[in-house]
């Protein structure tokens, strides 16, 4: 697999300005076309401009909300919940994932529980969380944790299962202790998988967070902003919120964690096929 990675990795030796500008221009053109069609359709009256306001009106509303400081509060609160929930998910998800991958008791206890809980929708957790933690930021943070933890566990387990048994034989035959095997073999071995898990998990967690902010109890947050706007039927804010969710989701999953993933691929020379 390491060979594929080197072949598929873009040649970065000579930073070609034309190529770079094209790689920035392409997304702008393709996304811009979508917005342009939308704008024209709304202005020309092909679609109901109240229900589908033109992008320019949405941008103007967003700008106003930004100036009033409200928007930053919503974004900040959403990001805070996402980061806290993700941090919890990475720590507990890795531990549970290793327990499942390495130990018989871990498999016996956690696998059934995970396959029972995974299909349970976010909303179903709210009565349980209400009993356990009450109604505040912790509710949404736990929802994020749940959404992301499954993905992290899943990738960590498949990372361990994908490791060759020979590695252990070799290490053990050379007299490595259990601890050494853990720190020198398992942890570096699952690192690339873990980061892929974080990337995918952050995507799910972001979506789950928005849904939780919309459906469960909250105040502030982008999901709440959309929900609140639909009470007033202010469509520009609804679409503005949806756009921001898309943009932030993209940035978190592809730019921030995506860079991290690319860096690990470079360092360990492994690409995870998921």
């Amino acid at each position: 697999m390491s060979a594929d990675a080197t072949i598929l990795a873009p040649v970065r030796s000579r930073p070609d300005i034309r190529r770079l500008s094209l790689s920035i221009a392409r997304p702008l053109i393709s996304i811009g076309t979508v917005f342009l069609v939308w704008e024209v359709a709304a202005r020309a009256g092909w679609i109901n401009a109240f229900l589908f306001p033109p992008p320019s009106a949405i941008a103007a509303t967003l700008w106003q909300e930004l100036l009033s400081g409200e928007l930053l509060q919503h974004i900040g609160r959403s990001l805070y919940r996402l980061l806290t929930g993700m941090a919890l998910a990475v720590v507990f998800g890795t531990l549970i994932g290793i327990a499942i991958g390495m130990t018989a008791w871990g498999r016996a206890i956690f696998k059934p529980l995970i396959s029972a809980f995974m299909p349970v929708p976010t909303l179903a957790w709210t009565p349980v969380l209400l009993l356990l933690v009450g109604i505040n930021d912790r509710t949404t943070i736990i929802v994020v944790f749940i959404a992301a933890a499954f993905e992290v566990i899943y990738t960590v387990v498949s990372g361990i299962e994908g490791m060759s048994v020979r590695l252990f034989w070799v290490a053990r035959s050379m007299g490595a202790s259990r601890q050494q095997i853990f720190w020198k073999i398992i942890l570096p071995g699952i690192m690339p998988y873990l980061i892929t898990g974080i990337r995918l998990g952050s995507g799910y967690a972001w979506r789950a967070l928005i849904a939780a902010e919309m459906l469960a109890a909250s105040s502030y947050g982008l999901g709440f902003m959309i929900f609140d706007a639909s009470e007033y039927m202010t469509m520009e804010v609804i679409y503005g919120g949806i756009l921001l969710i898309a943009i932030f989701g993209y940035v978190i999953e592809n730019v921030i964690v995506g860079r991290l993933e690319a860096a690990t691929v470079e360092k360990w020379g492994v690409q995870v096929a998921r």
Partner: peptide, 18 residues
């Protein structure tokens, strides 16, 4: 004032969360 969904209000009152 604690903002919540109308479906949760009863349980929150009953549990003493509000």
């Amino acid at each position: 004032i604690v903002n919540m969904k109308v479906e949760d209000i009863r349980a929150a009152v009953q549990r003493g969360i509000v």
